[in-house]
Design a protein around this nucleic acid. Structure first.
Lengths: 127, 127
DNA sequence: TATACTGTATAGGTTGACTAATACACCAAT
DNA sequence: ATTGGTGTATTAGTCAACCTATACAGTATA
């Protein structure tokens, strides 16, 4: 199953779906042209309302991640390879932006924060 | 005037107050032992409800920024800089852990991610 | 004790984000 | 044209965050 949601996580369901779709595309688990699960089937398997899935799909289409074909399933948008790299960087920035804000708010030394991230990414894998 | 709030900024008033108090402490404009404006006087000068100020003060006390003395004004907490730094690093690790997982999921080069975080932390700030 | 400060517990009102229910428009295939 | 599939506009309901009003508890000082 490509999508998993937790209704009690505090994160809106449609955002969880958008997040997972973006990561799947950026990470290569979904390629341009691949069809997505239909609104109804995905809603049924996740136990949520079809409109919630539709909202996520619609926003992803506006962001250029998905392509719409009226009356047919949505597919992953056709993206040039260089743009994929740029998109990956953009995704990374979207991840790190809010984190950087919080780090600044914490008043932590930037060098310490950067060193910690490097340790987490290259060092031992922790829970 | 140490505190200024904008009710229309979208940022909750009590968070604006917390932010400014933390920055004042970190920046040395408030030192350990210094008293804060009373809940009522600050609320009056800002045109907000006293409970809103009290909420900010209360949260700051829980975070260890302020110290409570029943019946008397709150003062800036007396905390060893080392302890404060350690506590912040702990919070930072909880913050960066899940982010590191997602970065790995993206398949981004760790060096790129680390470099981006450094740029975000040392570069320009946002509105 | 009276008074005038300090902060706060409790409850209610307002607002906005999120989700859901219904009915609809579109396309393909029979 | 009918059936079964796609996504969606509209409307209504739910829920949590935020701010506020009121009344209260503790402490210092005269």
């Amino acid at each position: 199953m490509l999508f998993v949601v937790d209704p009690h996580s505090g994160v809106p369901i449609f955002r969880q779906l958008m997040e997972q779709a973006k990561l799947a595309v950026a990470g290569g688990r979904l390629s341009p042209g691949d069809p997505l699960p239909s609104v109804r089937s995905l809603a049924l398997s996740l136990g949520v309302n079809p409109m919630t899935v539709s909202k996520a799909y619609n926003l992803l289409e506006r962001e250029g991640v998905l392509a719409r074909r009226p009356g047919l399933p949505l597919v992953v948008a056709d993206i040039a390879p260089d743009e994929l790299g740029a998109r990956r960087l953009g995704e990374l920035e979207r991840l790190l932006g809010p984190v950087a804000d919080q780090i600044r708010e914490l008043g932590v030394d930037p060098d310490d924060a950067v060193a910690l991230l490097r340790r987490l990414l290259t060092g031992t894998e922790d829970a």
